[in-house]
Design a protein around this nucleic acid. Structure first.
Length: 296
DNA sequence: GCCCAGGTGAAGC
DNA sequence: GCTTCACATGGG
């Protein structure tokens, strides 16, 4: 629920009323890579706005630069209207899922810009989250546009457009330390910029067709496609399986058995339906938060 | 030095 | 079809 807004006048801040929302868990769970925290205040860029967020028990307080009269872009990004209780009630009532839910109170799945999400996850393969953040920071400094921002923070940059990256050279991209992912990002940027692949079209087709479209892009396989389907397009049935989730499925659901990735993918989309995407994100965050201290 | 990280694509059976 | 391997880079 948002506070009633005065439609005509721009405001530099607002409060979004929330219940059962954990901003820290949401912004640190490996969905989005550009948020930084200092003094209990999250700083990021959403829809071309520099944003600062703080959290109290019943509200997320937001500041925008420049001021705006409509905050829908932010409440949509944060998915504050989503009722977590309803979603969690659809999870399987098994022991692993109960433990994951207990560790992830208030974790929401964001709704991000498709291009930013796609490009970010192309850069994510076999990288730790801190390194993905470093690469993307460097990419935004080199190819994004400097943003009018709060006077007391470093310059913020927009996420570079497909057009901007399509014009870059592979060597310039490699200078952002993305290694072998550089040609993937470059060729994908060119495909999106040229219109060969239309990211807007994924909004109006079924999940299978959207996944097929995304997987035609270089550097985009099943896992990265599923991340974009879930984190940008809101397909709740997507279930990205990375090394952490693979570990979760094998250790918690199929201990001492040999199960192929394909078989696990089939199991997951049935077992965790209809909100498998949320379930996946809870398992992912649970595994990372408890790494090294989980009883096997 | 080693192994691992929100994988993918190509080459080999 | 399935398995194996190279691919850059940095953290632990």
């Amino acid at each position: 629920m948002t506070k009633p807004q005065v439609a005509s006048s721009a405001q530099d801040s607002t409060s979004l009323l929330v219940s059962n929302y954990d901003l820290d868990a949401t912004l640190t769970s490996g969905q989005a890579f550009r948020w930084t925290k200092s003094n209990d205040c999250w700083l990021g860029v959403v829809s071309g706005h520099a944003v600062r967020l703080t959290h109290t028990p019943d509200a997320i307080h937001a500041q925008s630069f420049p001021p705006v009269s409509d905050w829908h872009w932010l409440s949509d990004y944060l998915q504050i209207e989503v009722n977590l209780g309803n979603i969690i009630s659809t999870f399987p009532k098994d022991e692993p899922m109960k433990r994951a839910v207990a560790h992830c109170q208030g974790l929401h799945v964001l709704k991000q810009d498709p291009w930013e999400c796609l490009a970010s996850f192309i850069l994510s393969s076999t990288k730790q989250i801190v390194q993905i953040q470093q690469i993307i920071r460097s990419l935004c400094r080199c190819f994004g546009d400097p943003l009018q921002s709060f006077p007391d923070v470093p310059t913020q940059y927009t996420f570079p457009s497909a057009e901007a990256l399509a014009k870059a050279s592979e060597a310039e991209l490699r200078a952002c330390k993305m290694g072998f992912r550089a040609p993937y990002l470059l060729r994908t940027a060119q495909a999106v910029d040229s219109g060969a692949v239309d990211l807007e079209r994924c909004r109006s087709v079924e999940v299978e067709e959207a996944r097929e479209m995304l997987m035609t892009l270089p550097g985009v396989g099943r896992k990265i496609a599923d991340c974009v389907l879930l984190f940008a397009y809101g397909f709740q049935e997507a279930f990205p399986i990375d090394v952490w989730v693979l570990r979760a499925l094998r250790e918690l659901y199929f201990p001492n058995r040999v199960v192929t990735l394909k078989r696990l993918q089939e199991f997951a989309s049935n077992h965790f339906a209809p909100n498998s995407g949320y379930a996946q994100q809870y398992l992912f965050h649970f595994m990372r938060m408890t790494a090294g201290r989980r009883a096997k």
